[in-house]
């Protein structure tokens, strides 16, 4: 069980883009938050800072009381293996099987080069990988190549890989943006039930406000890298959320995420 403390982090990219501007919040162990904001608002950068895939230019991030921002090498690896990331672009190794991909989740625990290849993995790891695949109802497709699976199936395998890590924190970066609504719903249900069962701390960015309403206990919203909303979901009105995306048309759109259908979702 780990809590997350973000102390006023800023991120300015080398090209001068200010992606985050003094964002700070605390999330208790086992709690969950949904991160909102339109494209280019800094959601993904914030999430990436929580796994040290990006380093903030100012401020610091503590996960379970340990400073992630200054961690390097082995201590960074130790921290990372406790923080599972589910990506929007699903990021499985395409020409390996679902099973092999799930095994890679154990890499952080292994030493040496060949730690988690299917030929070198321990019997225990192999069994746990199958257990993880079962947990996401993908055990029957364990030996299928990842690139032959549908988008929803691939995201479930990616979640199984995250489970293989046995993390206490899950960061999900628009996990359903690349999926059709039905597959997206199943993936969200799975993600949340897994996180609840294991008592994980979850931060999930979402584009779809109606989905956010279903799963969000707490909303954190960013506009141009600044935190504008941070409140329990019940206290955030639909109008507030709508306002968040109202100026989306005028904001710079990096066009990287598909389907900006939030306004309709609010009306529905």
């Amino acid at each position: 069980m780990r809590d997350i403390r973000v102390h006023d982090i800023s991120k300015v990219f080398p090209n001068g883009t200010r992606a985050l501007d003094k964002v700070g919040f605390e999330l208790g162990a086992g709690e969950s938050a949904v991160l909102l904001g339109h494209n280019g608002s800094g959601k993904s950068t914030l999430l990436r800072c929580l796994n040290a895939l990006e380093r903030p230019t100012a401020g610091r991030v503590e996960v379970g009381g340990i400073n992630l921002t200054s961690a390097r090498g082995a201590s960074l690896r130790m921290l990372r293996r406790d923080i599972g990331v589910v990506f929007q672009r699903i990021n499985l190794v395409p020409n390996l099987s679902a099973f092999q991909n799930v095994l890679f989740g154990a890499m952080g625990r292994q030493r040496g080069l060949l730690g988690s290849l299917s030929i070198t993995a321990s019997a225990e790891d192999r069994a746990f990988a199958m257990h993880c695949l079962e947990r996401v109802s993908m055990a029957h497709l364990a030996s299928q190549r990842a690139d032959t699976l549908s988008g929803g199936q691939q995201q479930r395998v990616a979640i199984a890989r995250t489970l293989m890590q046995r993390p206490s924190v899950i960061l999900a970066d628009e996990p359903i943006a690349a999926l059709d609504p039905k597959a997206g719903q199943r993936v969200m249900e799975l993600l949340w039930s897994v996180a609840r069962d294991e008592g994980m701390t979850v931060i999930c960015t979402l584009h779809n406000l109606s989905v956010a309403r279903i799963y969000g206990e707490r909303f954190i919203a960013l506009v141009s890298g600044r935190k504008v909303i941070d409140a329990p979901a019940a206290k955030v009105s639909d109008a507030d959320l709508k306002a968040l995306y109202a100026d989306a048309d005028t904001a710079e759109d990096d066009g990287d995420a598909p389907g900006l259908s939030m306004p309709q979702a609010v009306n529905a």
Binding site: M78, L79, R80, G84, V85, G105, M107, G108, R109, T162
Partner: peptide
């Protein structure tokens, strides 16, 4: 990047 995020070296 996904593997690096799990703590892989």
């Amino acid at each position: 990047e996904a593997l690096a995020s799990t703590g892989a070296g």
